[in-house]
Amino acid sequence: MSKVAKPLAVFVGLLVIWHMAVSVFDIAPFILPGPLAVIEVAISRADILLGHAAVTFMEILLGLVFGTMLGSASALFMAYFRQARSWLLPVLVVSQAVPVFALAPVLVLWFGYGMAPKVAMATLIIYFPVTAAFYDGLRRTEPGWIDLARTLGASKAAILRQIRLPAALPAFASGLRVAAAVAPIGAVVGEWVGSSAGLGYYMLLMNGRVQTAAMFAALFILAIMAVAIYFAIDAALRRLVAWQPEADPAAFT
């Protein structure tokens, strides 16, 4: 109970401070609207906001699916074919030196204004943490397990599938948690660069019209969505590695 109550109390406290600051310092609503104004807009434009939220949600979700699939496949490929590793790993690392945000205009140019470039952005952002963490996990299998499996007559493929892969799941889970946290960034940046729908697009639009309260409403919906996605994935991952001893540093709730 207090696990939920404590952060909630902090959140409500921050809203109160925000509200008081706006009224005490008499801040203009187009600079910083009070929380009540934001809630009011969020309710009055709920249908519009939710429509944009659905678009952004789909972009994040598809990005997560594709990024996780591509990342897992790359990690497994490098783990199984040792030679591939020396070819691919440097490329992978160098590719991360290119800011994904800088690629956004190019992706829009290639994939148009629809959902595709945003999904591509989210995929790119998710791909690296998943690949790096999963590959790391696959590489660090307890050597005794592999020795044992070899004396038991296991093939290389069987060792990868039945020992190295499950053993790497905790590392994979860490990578996916990071990915889940950064995935919304990819989608929103993609929307900023060029789009006609989505919360990022709506925020930019409202910003241009100096409807700051609407912008904040979109921002809050985005934040709630991001947190919900994170916890849903976290819960799923906990089930996946339920066998792991309880000492999870990622658990902060």
Binding site: E142, G144, W145, D147, L148, A149, L152, G153, A154, S155, A158, I159, Q162, I163, P166, A167, L169, V241, W243, Q244, P245
Partner: peptide, 23 residues
């Protein structure tokens, strides 16, 4: 070995049967 090398995601019985599973 000194470490039991049991796979933590398998039950005790499945660990005993590990050889057959792997093959």
């Amino acid at each position: 070995a000194q470490q039991d090398l049991l796979l933590p995601w398998l039950s005790a019985a499945d660990n005993v049967a590990l050889g057959a599973r792997l093959r």
